[in-house]
Design a protein around this nucleic acid. Structure first.
Lengths: 163, 163
DNA sequence: ACAATGTATATGAATTTTCATACATTTTTT
DNA sequence: AAAAAATGTATGAAAATTCATATACATTGT
């Protein structure tokens, strides 16, 4: 927690583009694009009394209602134990419910409640609306081609699964 | 925390593709691509005794050593207060150091220490290496075109700054 | 020159997230 | 058919992150 004096603007500031790292680093571009693109919508999520991970769970369940925990965690881009905690809370709030899987006693399957589905439906509509605006503002841009590119990347990433 | 019986595979599983939401939702694709693409490298980061946000700080400083806190938080994709906490820890570990800005007494500027720069340099090398592998495995794929597309998207996102 | 307003960072309590592991069940091996 | 290994979920303590706000300095308007 030391504090030294000296050093001002002088030393700081831009390098020539060919010396920068992050701006041309794929994983950074992905993370940055995701964060910056999502910022606005994330605040809409909060305005609806949800946190981002909860929204991801709702959205995931809209596509795969009754998903098992592990699968849902994968879809919702979070760790299993975190999902368990979040399900606890969403269950208490009456948004989702757990049911035993008939075939495999280890599994629980997560379902939207009526209330949950109602909220999810509303949010999906907002999401689509927001996305439309985003995509429209992208028209006539390179970024326009982004969806197929991301889809291809994801497909690729899901194949030769990690080390 | 209720647990009901019944319900198995029967109700679960895939909808036709045109009914799914997340798989065609831009913000989801971005978040998923980012997470899945980064997974492997993130474990490398931890193997080097860093957490992901710390790596982002190091990487950011490689490009903009002496950045002010707010700017660095933006680069490192995190909130200002979080960065402050992280700087505390990195400072204690001797990776970075705070210096007063001569021109504006409110500002602090963050610099890599020698040790920090050494580690950052090593990690950047690893990152580039890892990225090369990723890009290579992408060759002859749509995803190949991803960088320019993301760059365009980011540029766009940074212009008409949020509402 | 002085309020008033705005900006930059730090701080600490509250909340969220992670990490390691426990527990229950299923699958595989012998 | 046991035993061993693997899988699915939950749990709780530890650690990280957020949120609201304090503090300090800068800028603006009068």
């Amino acid at each position: 927690m030391q504090e030294e004096p000296l050093q001002g603007k002088a030393l700081v500031g831009g390098k020539p583009d060919d010396e920068t790292f992050v701006d041309s680093y794929l994983l950074y571009l992905l993370a940055a694009a995701s964060r910056k693109a999502s910022e606005q919508f994330h605040s809409r999520i909060r305005q609806n009394g949800l946190r981002v991970p909860e929204w991801r769970v709702l959205a995931g369940l809209m596509d795969k209602d009754g998903a098992m925990v592990t699968r849902l965690a994968d879809i919702a881009l979070m760790e299993q134990s975190r999902l368990s905690h979040i399900i606890d809370q969403m269950d208490k709030r009456g948004l989702v419910t757990r049911k035993f899987d008939t075939d495999d006693g280890r599994r629980k399957r997560i379902f939207l409640t009526d209330h949950g589905r109602q909220l999810a439906t509303k949010m999906v509509a907002e999401a689509r609306e927001h996305e439309a605006g985003l995509l429209q503002s992208l028209a006539d841009t390179d970024a326009e081609r982004i969806k197929p590119v991301l889809t291809a990347l994801l497909k690729h990433l899901n194949n030769d699964k990690p080390t």
